[in-house]
């Protein structure tokens, strides 16, 4: 099954999704969008770990990366007052 077309296509799809999410996390205007993109990246990574026969790691990444990390980042957004202000607009603090 390894090296089959299904596996290659699945890996390609997941890698593309993950790289897109990574770029979106760094380049998007809104911080909320960035955090959600990071969560999507973790989800792609989880599925990739399942493909790579690492169920333990997939479980950890799913629980920690998709769940807890997003929760921590969401609380941080609230606490850092970053919900609305995008990256360029925050310079009005000056």
């Amino acid at each position: 099954m390894d090296g089959s077309l299904f596996m290659i296509l699945a890996a390609l799809l997941l890698v593309v999704v993950m790289l897109t999410a990574a770029l979106a996390a760094l380049l998007s205007e809104s911080h909320l969008v960035a955090v959600v993109s990071l969560s999507i990246l973790s989800l792609g990574l989880t599925l990739l770990f399942v493909l790579l026969r690492a169920p333990d790691v997939a479980m950890t990444e799913g629980v920690v990366g998709v769940g807890l990390s997003s929760l921590i980042f969401a609380l941080a957004l609230k606490r850092l007052r970053l919900y609305r202000s995008s990256t360029p607009a925050e310079s009005c603090d000056e």
């Binding site: 390894d2 090296g3 596996m7 290659i8 890996a11 997941l14 993950m18 790289l19 990739l48």
Partner: peptide, 12 residues
């Protein structure tokens, strides 16, 4: 498969 996965990991 190796190329795709390695490119993905290193790119990340």
């Amino acid at each position: 498969l190796a190329a795709i996965l390695y490119v993905g990991a290193v790119s990340l």
